[in-house]
C-alpha cells in the first residue's frame, strides 16, 4: 500500500507542510512540538484543507487539485491524542459507531475480534468517563479499526499515559503493524518511541 503525500498550508507567517512517500508499516512523522505534525494528520483525515498538494493512499486520491474527499469518504482511521470518545455513548456504541457506517464489503474486523485483539471485552458496557487512560486509548484504537480504514493515523497516542500503560499500548500498535498489517502514520516527538515502532521515519519541521 503506497502512501504518497505532498501538502502545504500557510498559517499566518509560517508554513506547515511535508513531502514523503511510504510503504506499508509504521511511518513516524517525527519532530519537535509545534511544527504542525497534528495539522498534517488533520490534512490527511480531511479535517484541514491543504493550500496545495496531493494525498494518495493505495492508489486512491484523497486530495489533489481536482479532488477533495470529505473525511467520511476517506477511509482513514484516526486515533487522537486524547482518545476523543463520545461521552454520551457506552464503549460498545463507541466501538460500533464507525462499523455501522462502513460499507459491509469494506469491513475487515468484527466487534468480537476487535474486543479480543485489544483486550477490552470486559469494558463494553462502561461509559467512557469511567475508563482509565490506557483503557480509553484501547477503545479509541478499536473504534478506529472497526470503521474499516485503509490507513490508521495516530497522534501521540501514548502521551497521556503513564510508563506502564505506554508499554502495553506500544505492544498493541506493533501487533496492528505486524499482524493486521494496517499502514500507520504515527506522530510523535519522542525519539525512543519512534525508534521502537517506526519502519520509516519522516523528519518534520527541518
Amino acid at each position: 500500500m503506497a502512501i504518497d503525500i505532498d501538502v502545504e498550508r500557510r498559517f499566518g507567517a509560517s508554513v506547515i507542510g511535508a513531502q514523503f512517500t511510504a510503504e506499508a508499516g509504521l511511518t513516524a512523522l517525527f519532530g519537535p512540538s509545534g511544527v504542525g505534525k497534528t495539522s498534517l494528520l488533520n490534512m490527511v483525515a480531511g479535517l484541514l484543507r491543504p493550500d496545495r498538494g496531493h494525498i494518495r493512499i493505495g492508489g486512491r486520491t484523497l486530495f489533489d487539485d481536482a479532488t477533495d474527499l470529505p473525511p467520511e469518504a476517506r477511509r482513514v482511521g484516526y486515533v487522537f491524542q486524547d482518545g476523543r470518545l463520545f461521552p454520551h455513548r457506552r464503549v460498545k456504541a463507541n466501538l460500533l459507531y464507525g462499523w455501522r457506517l462502513a460499507d459491509p464489503a469494506n469491513r475487515w474486523m468484527t466487534l468480537d475480534e476487535a474486543a479480543d485483539f485489544l483486550g477490552i471485552g470486559h469494558l463494553l458496557g462502561r461509559w467512557p468517563q469511567s475508563l482509565s487512560g490506557g483503557e480509553a486509548q484501547r477503545v479509541a484504537i478499536g473504534r478506529a479499526l472497526l470503521a474499516a480504514p485503509q490507513i490508521l493515523l495516530m497522534d501521540e497516542p501514548l502521551s497521556s499515559l503513564d510508563a506502564a500503560r505506554r508499554g502495553d499500548i506500544m505492544t498493541v500498535i506493533e501487533r496492528i503493524r505486524d499482524e493486521l498489517k494496517v499502514p500507520i502514520l504515527y506522530v510523535s516527538h519522542d525519539r525512543a518511541e519512534v525508534d521502537r515502532l517506526a519502519t520509516q521515519i519522516v523528519e518534520v519541521g527541518k
Binding site: A45, G46, L47, P70, P71, E72, R74, V76, G77, Y78, F80, R84, F86, P87, Y97, G98, L101, A102, R143, A144, A147
Partner: peptide
C-alpha cells in the same frame, strides 16, 4: 467539544449524521 464532530466525520459520518448522533 467540536473535535468530537471531527472524530465522527473520520469514522464515516457525513455532516448531517454527525450532527444528529453527536
Amino acid at each position: 467539544d467540536r473535535r468530537l464532530e471531527g472524530a465522527a466525520r473520520t469514522l464515516g459520518a457525513g455532516r448531517w449524521h454527525a450532527f444528529r448522533t453527536v
